[in-house]
């Protein structure tokens, strides 16, 4: 397998009884790439991502994430990745500082590192006045920026983002994507799942899953050309239900 890739997936399949949730998918994600992983509700995105982050064993096929085998080296996979989701990212009843300390500890950072990283993170985001406030009191957009920074604490090579900017105000959303591009520029790989097509347009390449299979994979620009569409939304509708 090509070790230049951050993620290398070969014939990955997951079945639950008679139901095939993920059906023989193969793709790769290059180092430093911003990769969008799209699909309708129930298309198999979540199942596929759970396998890639090492919390669900595949039925067949294999995948390397940060050069670790997801089936046999799941613990090493988990240490090499960051994860952030819209639904759960930080503890609302801990302060920003406490969240950083907590997650730093979980990721195995020592006290001195946690202290340095806490200062750096708070400086970066300009959150000195809020550092001792409960996360629950922060506007959603700030929460998401803090959550993204926390997912980077242990210097992971790959960051998995699950619908990172849903509901966030447009300006904060741009700041969030600037942070994503900054990390990609440093060589980090970004794997984003979303069903908001405008989020997909920020990605270098996107894949679209339909009923367990990857039906299309290309740059947003090429997909729009291939499917003769003005927007990723139209591409998606054509693929997912032959609509539009």
């Amino acid at each position: 397998m090509n070790t230049k890739n951050a993620i290398q997936v070969e014939n990955l399949t997951k079945t639950f009884g008679a139901f095939t949730a993920v059906n023989n998918i193969s793709f790769h994600v290059g180092k430093g790439e911003v990769f969008g992983f799209l699909g309708a509700n129930g298309a198999g995105k979540t199942t596929a991502m759970k396998m890639l982050i090492g919390i669900l064993k595949p039925s067949s096929g294999n995948a390397l994430v940060a050069n670790f085998d997801i089936a046999t080296q799941a613990d090493s996979v988990k240490k090499s990745i960051g994860y952030m989701s819209q639904r759960f990212s930080l503890y609302n009843d801990l302060t920003i500082k406490e969240n950083i300390t907590f997650f730093g500890g979980i990721y195995g950072l020592n006290k001195a590192d946690i202290k340095t990283k806490t200062h750096a993170l708070i400086d970066d985001l300009g959150l000195h006045d809020e550092a001792n406030k409960l996360v629950g009191a922060l506007p959603l957009g700030w929460k998401q920026k803090v959550a993204f920074s926390v997912s980077l604490l242990h210097d992971p090579q790959i960051i998995f983002l699950d619908e990172p900017t849903g509901g966030v105000d447009p300006i904060t959303r741009r700041q969030f994507w600037e942070m994503i591009y900054r990390e990609a520029d440093k060589g980090k790989t970004i794997f984003v799942t979303t069903h908001y097509m405008d989020e997909a347009e920020y990605c270098n390449r996107v894949s679209i899953m339909v009923e367990g299979k990857i039906e299309a994979l290309d740059t947003p620009k090429n997909l729009k050309t291939t499917y003769n569409a003005d927007s990723m939304d139209q591409v998606f509708l054509k693929l997912a239900r032959n609509l539009a």
Binding site: A40, G166, H195, D233, F236, A240
Partner: peptide, 10 residues
């Protein structure tokens, strides 16, 4: 339509 995929949203 929050949390609903593009097909259902349309």
């Amino acid at each position: 339509t929050t949390g609903v995929d593009p097909v259902s949203r349309k």
